[in-house]
Amino acid sequence: MTLLPFDIENNCYALEINDIIEIIPLVKIEDIIYANKYLSGLINYRGQLIPIIDLKYFLFQKKSKFLLSTRIIIYCHLLQTIGIIIEDLTDTIELDSRQLISDSEKLSGSNYIKAYYVDEEKTTKIINVANIINTIYNNK
C-alpha cells in the first residue's frame, strides 16, 4: 500500500492514498464568514464548490504556512468531497499493510489516528480522515 507522509510540528503523520482523488497546488480559497477556524474556506474544484480543512489547525490550532510544498488533497468519503490543506507534502511511502499497527492495539484514545507505522527512525501516525470528515459534518 502507499502512504502520503508529512510533518506537522515535528510529528510524522501520513494519509492512506485510497480515498484521495487528487493532489492540487494551493489555489485561491474563498472565505466562509463565521465558519470554524479549521475550515479555511471553499475552492472551485472542477466547477464544484468544496470545503477546505486546514489539518494543522484542526489538530494543533495553528494555521498552515503558504509554501510551494503546501498542497490541497481532494478527498472523497461517502460521496462527500472535501479538500485538506497539508504542509510539506512531497513524498510517498510504499509498504506492506501488515507493517501497520492498528490503533485499537495501542489505544491512543483518539478518533483521528487510524494506525501507526514504525520504522528505524520514527513513528508515523496514520490519520483517520473519515472520522475527521464525520466530525466536521456533525459539527455543521
Partner: peptide
C-alpha cells in the same frame, strides 16, 4: 513533484 504524487495516486 506534484505531478509524480498524483501519478502515484493514479498508479495505486
Amino acid at each position: 513533484n506534484l505531478l509524480s504524487l498524483n501519478a502515484s495516486i493514479e498508479a495505486e
